[in-house]
Amino acid sequence: MKILSIANQKGGVGKTTSTVNLGAALASMGQRVCLVDLDSQRNLSRTVQVEGHGNRSIADLIYNHVSGIGYDPCQYLLHNEKEKLDYIQASTMLATAPSILATSDNSNMVLSEILHAPEFGQYDYILIDCRPALDLLTVNALAASDAVIVPVEPESYAVDGLADLFSTIERTQKMVNPELRVNGILITRADSRRTLTRQMIDDLREAFGAQVYKTVIPYLADAAKAANDQHSAVNMKGSRLGGLYLELAKEVVAR
């Protein structure tokens, strides 16, 4: 089992789009996949949620675990047959999760303890869609993960924020998870017609070398249409975006 966090404290860089489509791409390759929505905005949950799946959420799991209330993790694992993957949905109560986590004696490791329960051993990949913040909830995701995927828009203000994220990753490595690594930096929402965009991509590749994936995700209307229709672009017939995420999945597996 590999746990991957899709993280960047900057909003609007394609974290949820990448989590959903990478998960669907891995599933289409025969991998057993579970998505975890760790953002109280619930965008991932809205995209993959199947009607009638109830309201059990990752926020409930965190609360029960910290409070010592017994629970069955399987009751929180929901299935989306169209995407051939499982998911744990979010709720608005995730906004209070950092405060709940702070009451635990092992506050950095709560999510790791949850996701390393035997019930999750059935998966090849667990993908965590992190909230746009470097708070205790994101640290929990990093502490639980084998690796991080960092989506970044090729704009100077977005790239500037990478230093803070990498500092958080390094602190997590030193404090609780020395095995954590960066699987790759994913360039998203790229408009290659713009000279500035092409220059920023070149700068990223020069600065981070092989850490930057070869696959570049352009800004495509497929992303919004797929989310609005509640499915991945991977399962949209003829979608260029879906094809690109299939290429990304191959890179992620190879690393």
Rank of each mutant, 00 (worst) to 15 (best):
M29Q: 15
Q230L: 02
L35A: 02
I126Y: 10
S156N: 03
I69L: 15
L61M: 15
G238S: 05
E251R: 12
A7K: 12
L22V: 05
Q89N: 08
R56V: 00
V150C: 10
T92Q: 14
A143V: 15
N228W: 07
V176Y: 10
K237Y: 07
L246C: 12
L85A: 08
P132T: 10
A223L: 06
R240Y: 03
D37A: 15
R131E: 02
L61K: 11
V48F: 11
A90H: 10
L246N: 06
M200K: 14
P118M: 13
V33G: 11
V13K: 12
A144I: 11
I201W: 08
V110I: 15
L85I: 10
A233V: 12
V152W: 04
K174I: 01
S99D: 04
L137T: 07
H79P: 01
E81A: 15
C130T: 09
L186C: 11
D202E: 15
A144R: 07
D86G: 03
Y213T: 03
G11I: 08
G52W: 14
L241S: 01
G23E: 10
G14T: 01
A59M: 03
S156W: 02
Q9L: 13
N106Q: 12
N228P: 00
D39Y: 09
Y219D: 05
A90V: 05
L26S: 06
P118E: 11
T96L: 13
Q230Y: 04
G243I: 08
F208T: 01
D60Q: 13
V159E: 00
M109D: 09
H65L: 06
A224D: 09
V152C: 14
L77T: 03
V50W: 10
A210T: 07
T47H: 09
E113M: 12
